[in-house]
Design a binder for these strands. Structure first.
Length: 491
RNA sequence: GGCGGCGUAGCCAAGUGGUAAGGCAGAGGUCUGCAAAACCUUUAUUCAGCGGUUCAAAUCCGCUCGCCGCCUCCA
């Protein structure tokens, strides 16, 4: 099976064939650094991080570029509001972005260029477009002439007439065509600026991505990604200006991720219905958030809610418990035996599931990065593992390769998706620690009560024992009676 | 108004022609002094509705209803 990807340009899945065999060049639109990132940004970045990892997993040599838009109206507006230079705003939020992405466990892209560090390249492209007659100067601005580019709107599947009919903004009368867009914007008094052949100004929004992507990846590259909301106008305009400048195909595969919704509505700054990554990570583990974001196909909408995150956490717990069980069995820890079905049957099932798992993982990922299916397969394998362990299979020396194979399969998947990468014990500690912080009872008090209960139980005073358990349960503590000792967890 | 997408069990979700993965929640059982966890069984004759094509449709076509997105900055 070969990798197939959904290409927005053709509106269908296509076999992925890199421009240069064995190598992949991909560019993903980063963020405009004027505020904290929300879960929608988290999704886009996690999704492309997984795509990046999977392509490398396929032994492709990947060059991954993700930019920072560090000059634009919103940054300038915030700078004016705070009375600071614009770059103080952009630098602050670049640092915030980097921190968020690191916490989400993202790999670093090969290059992370900033628009302001590529002004010369931007000016060069704009000059080329003007020279070719695809752009024109109007005062201190330079506009791209959409009528001079035949393929305009080929990505979003619209046409110019319809767009004008639905236009909701006032048209600048200096534009030759209402849809013409700015490549270069004249600086207003007090705004940051760079010198250019057209006077002091700054780049328009779209041109920076053309300049940076082509600088690091060449005039034609494989993958260009971003959120669905970038299809029009951003990516459409990138295609127009890039292809008009080079005369070549700009991008082979356009990939777009779906939105994160709140109550079925798009999470966005303008609607104000967003949660920042920072806020969510205060309540949930970053691995849980990643798992949640990958639990639906990347092109589908994903509804963000407390219940959905809690379910993701419950699912993660199930998987980590199974991993812990495997590790204990492999370490030779004897497991209790107690079963209804036969061990041989469970062993056969585990052998089959474990053997087919890597292949099923590849098939899922090869089908347009179907992480939801891949994670479903993990649960399937986990059930076989649990069953096998529950039947006492972990006690058999000769059955260890089966468990090791399952462990290896999940580890392989985990490395690509960036989940299940912790030691199970470390994961449970993290989750517990986070919850303990919210308790109204001190851990020392819990331990004291557990000791009292142990004494009561050994005296067969179950009544007092149950009393203590109920008391702790009321405070959100669940007691787990093991063969040797009683441990606890937060409900 | 134009263009596009979605509607699968109580909830989340995979499945784009071959007879409904998986998770969460729920119910019953095994285990346990009682619990928890784990395991077993169980929960959609059916995929928004109505027609059509086909030996066969959740999957293709048409219509209807509902929801959402883009058309303005947006991941």
């Amino acid at each position: 099976m070969t990798l197939r990807v959904y290409n927005t340009l053709s509106a269908g899945k296509e076999e992925f064939i890199p421009v240069e065999p064995g190598k992949v060049r991909m560019y993903v639109c980063g963020v405009t650094v004027y505020d904290h990132c929300h879960i929608g940004h988290a999704r886009a970045n996690v999704v492309f991080d997984v795509i990046y990892r999977y392509l490398r997993h396929l032994d492709l040599e990947v060059t991954y570029v993700r930019n920072y838009t560090d000059i634009d109206d919103k940054i300038i507006n915030r700078a004016i509001k705070e009375g600071v230079p614009f770059n103080e705003i952009s630098e602050r939020f670049i640092a915030e972005f980097d921190r968020d992405m690191a916490r989400l466990g993202l790999e670093l892209p090969t290059h992370q260029p900033k628009a302001t560090e590529h002004i010369a390249e931007i000016i060069a492209i704009v000059r080329t477009l003007v020279d070719k007659g695809a752009a024109y100067q109007a005062g201190g601005d330079v506009y791209f002439c959409v009528e001079r580019f035949d393929g305009y709107l080929k990505l979003s599947g619209r046409n110019l007439e319809e767009m004008q009919a639905g236009a909701r903004i006032e048209v600048d009368e200096r534009k030759r065509h209402p849809m013409d867009f700015a490549l270069w914007k004249e600086a207003k008094p007090g705004e940051p600026f760079w010198d250019s052949p057209w006077g002091k100004g700054r780049p328009g929004w779209h041109i920076e991505c053309s300049a940076m992507s082509m600088k690091y990846l060449g005039e034609t590259f494989d993958i260009h990604g971003g959120g669905k909301d970038l299809i029009f106008p951003h990516h459409e305009n990138e295609i127009a200006q890039s292809e008009a400048a080079t005369g070549r195909r700009f991008v082979k595969y356009w990939l777009h991720n779906g939105f994160v919704n709140i109550n079925a509505e798009k999470m966005s700054k303008s609607l104000g219905n967003f949660f920042t990554i920072k806020e969510v990570l205060e309540k949930y583990d970053s691995e849980v958030l990643r798992f949640f974001l990958l639990s639906a196909h990347y092109r589908s909408p994903l509804d963000f809610s407390d219940q959905n995150l809690a379910e993701a956490e419950a699912g993660m717990e199930r998987i980590y418990k199974a991993l812990a069980g495997i590790d204990e069995a492999l370490a030779g820890k004897p497991a209790p035996v107690g079963a209804s079905a036969t061990l041989a049957e469970a062993e056969g099932e585990l052998r089959e599931k474990g053997a087919s798992f890597p292949e099923r993982f590849r098939e899922a990922m090869d089908d347009d990065f179907n992480t939801a299916l891949a994670l479903g397969n993990v649960f399937d394998l986990v059930r076989s593992v649990n069953r096998f362990l529950a039947e006492g299979g972990g006690n058999k020396e000769e059955s260890r390769p089966l468990l090791a194979a399952a462990r290896a399969g999940i580890r392989e998947l985990g490395e690509v998706l960036g989940v299940f990468t912790s030691e199970p014990a470390a994961y449970f500690e993290r989750i517990k620690g986070r919850k303990v912080a919210q308790l109204t009872i001190a851990p020392e008090e819990i331990e004291r009560l557990i000791a009292e209960r142990a004494a009561a139980r050994s005296a067969r005073d179950f009544r007092r024992g149950d009393e203590i358990r109920d008391l702790l349960l009321a405070k959100g503590i669940v007691l787990l009676d093991g063969p040797q000792e009683t441990t606890w967890k937060v409900k």
